[in-house]
Design a protein around this nucleic acid. Sequence first.
DNA 1: GTCTATATAATGATAGAC
DNA 2: GTCTATCATTATATAGAC
Lengths: 192, 192
Amino acid sequence: MDTREKILDTALTLFNKEGTAAVSTNHIAEAAGISPGNLYYHFHNKQEIIRELFQRLNIIWETLESIPQDHAPVMADLKTVIEANYKIIWQYRFLYRELVALLRQDTELRTSFLAVRQRGFDGFHELLHMFSEAGVLDLPDDPKVVNELQEICWLISEFWLTNLEVNGLKVNEAEMQRGVNLIFRVIQPYLA
Amino acid sequence: MDTREKILDTALTLFNKEGTAAVSTNHIAEAAGISPGNLYYHFHNKQEIIRELFQRLNIIWETLESIPQDHAPVMADLKTVIEANYKIIWQYRFLYRELVALLRQDTELRTSFLAVRQRGFDGFHELLHMFSEAGVLDLPDDPKVVNELQEICWLISEFWLTNLEVNGLKVNEAEMQRGVNLIFRVIQPYLA
DNA sequence: GTCTATATAATGATAGAC
DNA sequence: GTCTATCATTATATAGAC
C-alpha cells in the first residue's frame, strides 16, 4: 500500500481510539511500521495529517450528496440516509468528538468543513420538502418551525454517537438504530 | 484569594478558551501569577486539576437537584430549568466539548460524573411526569416513547452549546433561548 | 523513499532555599 | 506556602546516509 495512505489510515485508527492529543507523530510512525523521519517526508506535521483526514471526510460527504434519487421518496429512504450518516461519522468519530478544538486550530479546514456541512444541511431541508410534496410528511406552514425540527434532527445525527460513547455504550447496529428512531420520533407528529 | 481556588479558576478559564490539550501546567501557573513549583504544591498534576473541576461541576448539579418545588409546575418552570442547565454547561464548557476523552482518562471521575448525570436524567423524567399529572402535558402511554423524547431533550441540552461553537456562533442569551425553543419544540406536540 | 541519528523545545514534575 | 533551579521525558522536526 501507498505509504502516505498507510499513514493516514493508521492515524485515523489511533485518533479514533485515543484522541488526537494522546497520539504523537512517533506513535503514528511506529504503528504504521515506518520511521519518524519517513512520516515527516510525507507530511509536514501532525496538523497536516488531521487536515488530510478532514479532506477525506469532506469528499465522502460530497460523494453522498450527488447520489440521484430515482423514485418518489418514502420513509425507508430517510432511514437509509440517516444510517449512512451515522456510519460515516463513526468512521471519523475523533473529528466529531473534538470538533470545537480541531476547527479552531485550523481556519482553512474550518471553512471547508462548514461549507460541506452547510450543503448537507440544505440537502436535508430539500429532502424534508420532497417528503412533504410526496404527501408523506405534513410539515407546519411556519418555516421557522420546520427549521427548528431540522436543527434538532441535525443535532441528533451529529452527536448521537458521541453521546453513546460518553455513556460508555458499545456502538453497534442496535444502538445506531436507536439513533435513527430518535430522529423519527422528532418528525413522527408530522407524519401525514 | 485562596491559591488553590485561584489555580482552579485560572485553569477553568484557560481550558474553556483553548482546550485541555493546549494548556500546560506552566501556562496555568503563569496565568495565575504563581510559580510552576507552587502549582505542584497544590496539585499533583494536571489531571488532578481537571478532576477537581469536574468535582466542582458535580456539586453544582447536586445543589440544583435539591431545590424544592413549592407550586404545581408550569411551563415557565421548565424554561427556568433548561436555562439554568445551559448556563452551568457554558461555565464548564471544556468538559462537555471533550467529554469522551476526559472520561476515558479517568475511571473514577467517569463513575462519579455518570452517577450525577443519571440522577439529573431521572429528575428530568420526574419533572415530565409532574407536568403530565398537572395536566400541562399529555404524554404518550408508551414509556418507550416518553423515554425517547427525554433522550432527545437531554441530547439537545448537553450538545446545543457545543453545536453553536462548532458553527462559530457567539454564545449569548439569544442563542441560548434558541436552545430552549428547540427543547420546547420537541414536547410541543404533546402539550395538553 | 526510507532509514538512523540528532537538534531543539516544551512539558511534567521534583528538590531545596527562603 | 512560595520561589528558583533543575531534570527526565517526550514531542516535533530536520540532516544526511543509503
